[in-house]
Amino acid sequence: MTVTAQEHPQTAALLRAAQAGDVAAIARALDAGAPLESRDARGRTPVLIATDGHHVAAARLLMERGADVNAQDAQRDSAFLLAGARGYTEIVRAALAHGADWRVTNRFGGTALIPACERGHVDTVRVLLATDIDVDHVNRLGWTGLLEAVILGSGGAAHQAIVRLLLARGAQVNLADRDGVTPLQHAQRLGQREVAALLRAAGGR
């Protein structure tokens, strides 16, 4: 439920403090009774706002106070999902320690893993793959993390590392997109020779 500044005098202060990453001000606002799950005009909770600003200490404090790391805003971002997509590995670790649900999906129907793969966040992908997250989850585009790492990736060292991690975790190397195009076929079309070699070695067709 959205709590406005009019409903509690410290809500606006809490939201401002989260935006600034001001740990002391966050603590003061919470101690004065500001609701932990207050929301701004975009539906963002303080922990999501702090995550958006990459304010690690602020996000951690809010989680320690019991913030819901799975609470989603108007565009279906949560602190956990956003941290995964941005490659904020420290916040991802903290969120996992405070109840992050890897099954929650973003506005594209993807888990935190998929955009992390796309954007080449190797450390974040490694952390996420240490959980029970579904390595072959398919988003609304019909893509898995492996497909996104190839189709939207650069083919460089980071995406090569991610492909290795996904394959080691058991990703289905020949799970094709909606048009029946496999990761290997995409890699070949895009001229990603190193990625193609990795996929071929894993049985890619």
Rank of each mutant, 00 (worst) to 15 (best):
Asp123Leu: 15
Asp136Cys: 09
Pro9Ile: 09
Gly204Trp: 01
Val135Met: 04
His98Leu: 09
Phe80Asn: 06
Gln72His: 02
Ala32Tyr: 01
Arg169Gln: 15
Ala34Arg: 03
Arg16Glu: 15
Pro183Arg: 03
Leu184Gly: 01
Thr105Lys: 13
Asp123Arg: 15
Trp143Asn: 09
Asp136Tyr: 02
Trp143Cys: 09
Asp68Glu: 08
Ala58His: 08
Ala85Val: 12
Leu141Ser: 13
Leu62Lys: 03
Asp136Asn: 15
Asp134Met: 11
Leu190Cys: 06
Asp134His: 09
Ala29Asp: 06
Val181Asp: 08
Gly66Thr: 07
Arg16His: 10
Val56Gln: 08
Phe108Asp: 14
Arg164Leu: 08
Gln188Leu: 11
Leu167Cys: 05
Thr11Ile: 00
Glu148Met: 08
Thr131Phe: 11
His55Trp: 06
Arg60Gly: 05
Gln75Trp: 15
Arg44Thr: 07
Cys117Leu: 03
Val92Asp: 14
Gly153Met: 05
Gly120Pro: 07
Ser154Thr: 15
Ser38Trp: 00
Ala97Ile: 03
Asp22Lys: 01
Gly21Trp: 08
Gln75Asp: 13
Glu7Gly: 14
His54Arg: 12
His55Leu: 08
Ala158Gln: 09
Arg169Ser: 11
Pro35Phe: 15
Ala24Gly: 12
Leu152Asn: 09
Gly142Gln: 05
Gly191Val: 00
Asn106Cys: 12
Ala187Asn: 01
Cys117Met: 06
Thr2Trp: 06
Ala83Pro: 04
Ala59Asn: 07
Ala130Arg: 11
Gly109Asp: 02
Gly99Tyr: 10
Tyr88Val: 05
Arg140Ser: 10
Ile162Asn: 03
Ala201Phe: 05
Ala100Tyr: 02
Ala149Leu: 01
Ile162Gly: 00
Ala196Tyr: 00
Asp40Tyr: 00
Gly203Ser: 14
Ala95Cys: 15
Arg103Gly: 07
Ala17Met: 05
Leu199Arg: 00
Gly66Pro: 07
Phe80Trp: 07
Glu7Trp: 01
Leu128Val: 08
Gly99Glu: 13
Arg119Cys: 04
Asn106Phe: 02
Gly99Trp: 12
Ala197Ile: 03
Asn174Pro: 05
Arg107Trp: 10
Asp73Leu: 03
Asp101Met: 07
Ala29Met: 04
Gly43Glu: 07
Leu14Ile: 04
Ala12Met: 05
Gln6Met: 09
Gly203Gln: 12
Glu64Val: 06
Val23Tyr: 02
Thr51Gly: 06
Thr111Tyr: 01
Phe80Met: 12
Asn139Asp: 15
Thr111His: 09
Ile151Asp: 00
Gly156Ile: 03
Ala168His: 12
His137Trp: 15
Thr89Pro: 06
Trp143Asp: 06
Asp77Ile: 00
Ile114Leu: 11
Leu184Ala: 03
Gln10Phe: 14
Ala130Ile: 09
Ile133Ala: 14
Gly33Ser: 11
Gly84Leu: 04
Ala18Trp: 02
Asp136Met: 07
Ala168Tyr: 07
Arg119Met: 13
Asp31Glu: 15
Gly84Tyr: 02
Ala196Glu: 00
Asp177Pro: 04
Leu199His: 00
Arg42Trp: 14
Glu7Asp: 14
Gly99Cys: 06
Asp179Ser: 15
Leu165Ala: 15
